[in-house]
């Protein structure tokens, strides 16, 4: 039963007030994309033991989607941030690096996005 702070309304929301939206920072591939691109967009999901970026909706609250960076093993939350970004904000990356110096993997399906 996680608690995640909604970056829009500042409520420290209980997991029961949230709806999960799975992996964050996916890039949409529409008409004209290759089968590989579409497969990556539609089906290829990371399942890391460790740092992970997720989508959550404050469903029983302000109704806004936000993104969360957390550790799937220890459930440590590195931060939450608004969804209107294509990559994690610098301060979140910094926080993760401070807490997980060994962290390398990116947030996109193809592993891109490593900093």
């Amino acid at each position: 039963m996680l608690t995640l702070e909604c970056p829009y309304c500042g409520v420290k929301a209980d997991e029961t007030e949230l709806a999960p939206g799975y992996e964050a920072h996916l890039k949409r591939f529409g008409p004209g994309s290759s089968p590989e691109e579409f497969e990556a967009y539609m089906f290829a999901r990371k399942n890391p033991k460790g740092v992970h970026f997720e989508r959550w909706r404050h469903a029983y609250g302000c109704g806004k989607w936000f993104l969360a960076a957390r550790c799937t093993a220890t459930l440590e939350v590195f931060g939450t941030y608004p969804a209107q970004v294509s990559e994690p904000p610098a301060d979140i990356i910094k926080k993760i690096q401070a807490r997980r110096p060994e962290w390398k993997s990116g947030w996109q399906p193809d592993g891109k996005g490593t900093k």
Partner: peptide
Amino acid sequence: AQRKIEVAGDKACGWMSPDE
């Protein structure tokens, strides 16, 4: 303001989300 409701007599305005 964020998460507040302003009351004026029998009327009020509540903050529901950043754009609602």
